[in-house]
Simulated assay, not measured.
Amino acid sequence: MKDDGRFRESWKTSNNGCWEWCGRLSDKGYGWFWDSANKKHVKAHRWSYESSVAAIPEGLEIDHLCRNRACVNPGHLEPVTHAENVRRAKYLKTECVAGHPLPVVESGSRECQECARERKRAYKARQKAKQPPKEKKLPPHGRGRYAHHGCRCDICCEAEKSYKRAWREKQAVAITRTETTGA
């Protein structure tokens, strides 16, 4: 291809056999290359595969067998379906982004259990912060059998005082009756 010389100047070989792209990288770590023949920017690994091996079949994407997104070595690139690419990437990971070990499962989710617990704790803390504090239920003032017990508000304290005063007066009346009749 026309840009082959410029392309060869844009990568260097690393110890693991990868051809590390030294030119412009995308925010996801893929190399970008100006294809002057088509007058557009292309992903460097796709250009490398298409110029060295063959055209990428419709419906397939390039998988980096080395898991290095900046690699443009055609020997490390293979066209696969998107599902296969995702499956390979998912099961090659041994730890989550926080560094916790991932569980090994045949199928289903490989969610990090420690991160899930941390997310749950954070969610509960956010929910608790949103809720107003629970108000203490006060007993109904002056109603019920034990309305004067427990609550220390002015209404209940006054009710308790009047209850005790009435009880003392009743006791005093009973004592005076027994003294007058008994003497």
Rank of each mutant, 00 (worst) to 15 (best):
M1F: 05
K2S: 13
D3L: 02
D4H: 10
G5Q: 14
R6Q: 11
R6T: 10
T13Q: 14
T13W: 12
N16C: 09
N16R: 09
N16H: 07
C18Y: 04
C18N: 05
E20F: 04
W21G: 03
W21I: 01
C22T: 14
L25P: 08
S26T: 15
D27R: 13
D27I: 08
D27Q: 13
K28T: 14
K28F: 05
G29H: 03
G29Q: 06
G31I: 01
W32E: 12
W34M: 03
W34F: 10
D35H: 00
S36T: 09
S36L: 01
N38Y: 00
N38I: 00
K39H: 09
K40V: 00
H45L: 03
H45S: 10
R46S: 07
R46K: 08
W47A: 06
W47Q: 01
S48M: 03
Y49T: 04
E50S: 04
E50W: 01
S51W: 03
S52F: 08
S52R: 10
A55T: 13
I56C: 10
I56V: 15
G59E: 02
G59L: 04
L60V: 06
E61Q: 15
I62S: 07
H64W: 03
H64R: 04
C66E: 03
R67C: 09
R69N: 12
A70K: 13
C71D: 07
V72L: 06
P74E: 05
P79Q: 01
P79K: 02
V80E: 01
T81K: 01
V86L: 09
R87G: 10
R87S: 14
Y91L: 08
Y91V: 12
T94M: 07
E95G: 05
E95R: 08
A98G: 03
A98I: 05
G99E: 04
L102K: 02
P103V: 05
P103Y: 00
V104M: 07
V104R: 11
V105A: 09
E106L: 11
S107W: 07
G108C: 02
G108L: 04
S109M: 06
E111H: 11
C112K: 00
C112E: 02
C112F: 02
Q113R: 15
A116T: 11
A116C: 06
A116E: 06
E118P: 01
E118T: 11
E118C: 06
E118K: 14
R119Q: 09
K120C: 09
R121H: 04
A122P: 01
A125N: 08
A125F: 03
K128F: 10
Q131C: 08
Q131M: 14
P133Y: 02
K134V: 12
K134Q: 13
E135R: 15
E135M: 08
K136L: 09
K137D: 04
L138S: 06
L138Q: 11
L138P: 00
R152F: 06
C156R: 10
E158H: 11
E158Q: 13
A159Q: 09
E160M: 12
S162W: 00
S162A: 14
S162I: 07
R165D: 14
R165C: 13
R165K: 10
W167C: 12
W167K: 14
R168E: 10
R168I: 08
E169F: 00
A172K: 06
A172G: 10
V173N: 12
I175V: 11
I175Y: 13
T178V: 13
E179M: 13
T180L: 15
T180K: 15
T181I: 09
T181Y: 12
A183I: 10
A183L: 11
